[in-house]
Design a protein around this nucleic acid. Sequence first.
DNA 1: CTGAAAGCGCTTACAG
DNA 2: CTGAAAGCGCTTACAG
Lengths: 343, 343
Amino acid sequence: MATIRQVAKKADVSIATVSRVLNNTSSVSDEIKMKVHAVINQLGYVSSVGRRPTSNIGLVYTGPTSPGSPYDAALFEGINKAMVDANYDLVVLNLQRDKKPNESYTQFFLRKAIRGVVLRTTSRTRHICTAIAGEGFPSIVVGDHFDEPNVNYLYGDSRQTSYQAIEHLITLGHRRITIAISAIEDSDHTDRLEGYKQALAEHDIEIDPKLIHRIPAQRPDGAQVIRKLMGMAAPPTAVFVTDPNVAVGTINQAHRMGIRIPEDLSILGFDDTDVRNNTYPQMTAICQDAQQLGYEAFMAIVQKLSGSNSHQVRRTLPTWLEFHDTTGKPPVSLSASYLMVTE
Amino acid sequence: MATIRQVAKKADVSIATVSRVLNNTSSVSDEIKMKVHAVINQLGYVSSVGRRPTSNIGLVYTGPTSPGSPYDAALFEGINKAMVDANYDLVVLNLQRDKKPNESYTQFFLRKAIRGVVLRTTSRTRHICTAIAGEGFPSIVVGDHFDEPNVNYLYGDSRQTSYQAIEHLITLGHRRITIAISAIEDSDHTDRLEGYKQALAEHDIEIDPKLIHRIPAQRPDGAQVIRKLMGMAAPPTAVFVTDPNVAVGTINQAHRMGIRIPEDLSILGFDDTDVRNNTYPQMTAICQDAQQLGYEAFMAIVQKLSGSNSHQVRRTLPTWLEFHDTTGKPPVSLSASYLMVTE
DNA sequence: CTGAAAGCGCTTACAG
DNA sequence: CTGAAAGCGCTTACAG
């Protein structure tokens, strides 16, 4: 475990200067600051509680996320399971509140005695993830992917599965297929949209912008979705809902409106846990195991800190398609009349 | 912020001895150990990271809990909200893994640089909560209540609301009312059972042990519940399900079996968040705001640490009853035949 | 079992 | 802007 003295020696400065760099207490020349920073991340310097080195891994929500959502709750459960197997504690950090504007992310984390971080991101806060990775601080983003070469990430790849699912709906005879997708454009959701578009394109079905329904992030409400859809002049025969709670809400609002599932409308949902088995009818869904994502992300950081994995982590976990009872053939009259008009 | 030197002075020992007591490194006489412990909790001694005092609050699951359950996820979300308003970080601790058998809880927490803890408990680990409180370490239990005078706690009081809800079912004409309740007997669930029993007793309805259905903790499965109930010689006309996920599973399995809700069976659920609004039919439920419980529990510890509240915290948050569409009058034939047999 | 003292990790006036 | 030195919080041989 590197100490301030070792850092000072290697960077060829006094320990006082290293301390100043760590704490931003008084001005240090940019040149020395950069040199010290480089040595800090190179040696893996860690703050100590008293004379004991700490073993804290941070969980950082870079943007506005709800830790209580099914996805984040499952991640958190997986992280808790990982903690049992690894000798680290989890510290939940508030970046917005605590990070001083003039300190680097590394400084911030060291000040909090954090050795590595699991990051959650949104489309607007991706730059924070790349900045942390750029500083060389041990980190991994869970639930998103990056092109930048130094960002570690782990996510469930739902693009291909989305493609297959939509293709299956097409094979069943559906032509007007809606996608209901979060207005927050994280890459997970964008992937699902891409899979949807690709399947339609390859089957020569025109992509109708009116069928791409954005769900407001403030009110992820399945009932709204279906009211909107069924009010359309030419309603869809199938919906792909990319969020578990919204999918459940869609199914139940359909019941309320007397829409039969799947006879009148097919619903393809998304499931991060096991929500699909607790709906009526049992939900056809693209599934991923968010708990495992949390587990693996935490373990990836643990491995990095133990020094056993120094190269980049770019992993995907599989998603899979489960056919249950919310999807079926489109209603005969509708699909027939639709085909007559357009073909 | 008290230091080891101040503790040593007040306890009239050397700083070396205080250090030994804190770390259990070598034997110290019981008399001195107790004296030092007393001073530590009296002065509110805190470990430092380097020379900076820490501001960590711990979240401790004393027994096997699933942090991803709707209740715990909502608590966690509330705690995260509280963190934005209070200058503390959250550390999730693993007591089973990390606490050495010969160290006290206070020693353990100080070693982790924790200043106060929010505790989650189960019936089997209540002694851990009383032990932590007994040591004088700042703590609060969320989601349970205690008779011991020094344990701080905060919970949603569901006993009276359960009583009222069952009484309402009785008023509607129900006589055979089942309660489906977790096999883990935490006091939250016991309260609901007590409310149920009280309502039946006050309306001169005999408590039939066959109608008290225990849900195995390993498999909290609503489908099982209803299969079991409907297979009874004299099935109930109403069910009170004290867990949100199980309640939803019960409703949906009823649909699968062609049991009409509420015409054939009334279902009274429990809701920690807003699950009741996302079922079909919309679920009649006893509701509590678990997110607020998390928020208030965290803030209570913050207050204790700031010294503004030194007396015991014994708070309940209200629960309330929402009548929606899963409850109604019992089926005429059934209740009539039942009444003929027994009265 | 206990304390005085050496010493580590770190921060902070002080001096330049 | 930087270092040598004083000093704080803490731990740990050493001595009794």
